[in-house]
Computed example of a mutant assay.
Amino acid sequence: MSGDDCLFCRIARGELPAHRVHEDDHILAFLDLHPIRPGHCLIIPKQHHPWFEDLPEDLANRITSCAQRLSRHMKALYGVERVALFYTGIHVAHAHAHVVPMHHVHDVSSQAYLKDGVLDFTQPPQLPAEHGARIAGDLAAAFPA
């Protein structure tokens, strides 16, 4: 999808409404229309980048700094101990960070932890050491010496 048709590009350009929380020349923070909790914000780059790994490092840092500032304020505003920050990209192919004040430990849990219901916490099976060593080695290849 091009930036012309992208939902978040259209919001960034002001063509679609959003409850804007913060904006500068490079990023926009606004309320999620389908929040996990009140205050759930999205932070997007104004320039179209489909996935978070496509973001230039300085832009990713700008998004993270904005999320940290929002997080500190959300903790005071909502009286929560934790605020989650994550990128998903599931519904819109435009890099976007979610900042969610966590009122409950399972506000952003994976289904892998909830097989016994939301009142219980189920540990997924432990990763066998030999598999962990192989996977860590495979991923470490992203950081050549």
Rank of each mutant, 00 (worst) to 15 (best):
M1R: 13
L7I: 12
F8C: 08
C9E: 08
R10C: 07
A12H: 10
G14E: 04
L16W: 09
P17R: 15
P17Q: 08
P17T: 11
H19L: 13
R20N: 08
H22S: 12
E23G: 03
H26V: 02
H26F: 05
L28R: 08
I36G: 02
P38Y: 05
P38C: 03
P38K: 06
H40L: 03
C41E: 01
I43D: 01
I43Y: 01
I44L: 08
I44V: 15
P45I: 01
P45S: 06
Q47S: 13
H48V: 02
H48F: 06
F52K: 01
F52V: 10
E53W: 15
L55Q: 12
L55E: 10
P56S: 01
L59I: 09
A60R: 09
A60H: 11
I63Q: 05
S65L: 12
A67D: 05
Q68N: 04
S71K: 04
S71W: 01
H73T: 10
H73L: 12
H73A: 15
K75E: 12
G79I: 00
V80P: 01
R82W: 11
R82E: 06
R82P: 00
L85V: 05
F86G: 01
Y87D: 09
Y87V: 15
T88N: 14
T88P: 02
G89Q: 02
I90H: 14
V92Y: 05
A93W: 09
A95E: 05
V99G: 07
M102H: 05
H104K: 11
H106D: 15
H106G: 03
H106F: 12
D107W: 02
S109H: 09
Q111M: 13
A112C: 09
Y113L: 15
Y113N: 06
D116A: 13
T122R: 09
T122D: 07
T122C: 09
Q126R: 07
A129D: 14
A133E: 11
I135C: 05
A136L: 12
G137C: 03
F143R: 12
F143H: 13
A145H: 14
